[in-house]
């Protein structure tokens, strides 16, 4: 298990666990980022938010928040 900010671009991952305060958790679930969700990391450039594709949408998530999203790679 790793965190979303450490995933290489092009990888498909499943969310295992999310940490953080309730405000962040609510915001994450409102865009579909809950345990079990499948997403593809599109870009992970240095010093930029991580770009993921999930639920019809391209999402940009700040690195700091990515560090509290634990994911597992999907084969």
């Amino acid at each position: 298990m790793t965190t979303l900010d450490k995933v290489a671009p092009g990888t498909q991952v499943r969310i295992e666990r999310v940490d953080g305060n309730i405000r962040l958790l609510t915001r994450l679930s409102s865009v579909g980022l809950v345990p079990g969700a499948l997403l593809t990391v599109e870009r992970a450039d240095k010093n930029r938010p991580v770009l993921v594709y999930e639920r019809d949408t391209m999402l940009a998530i700040n690195r700091q928040e990515c560090a509290s999203i634990y994911v597992e790679e999907v084969a």
Binding site: V18, I22, L25, T26, L28, S29, S30, G32, V34, P35, G36, A37
Partner: peptide, 16 residues
């Protein structure tokens, strides 16, 4: 329920 850590996650999943 959503005001707790676990509840926020489970209720969020339910809505999805």
């Amino acid at each position: 329920a959503s005001a707790t850590h676990d509840g926020a996650v489970t209720c969020g999943s339910a809505r999805l």
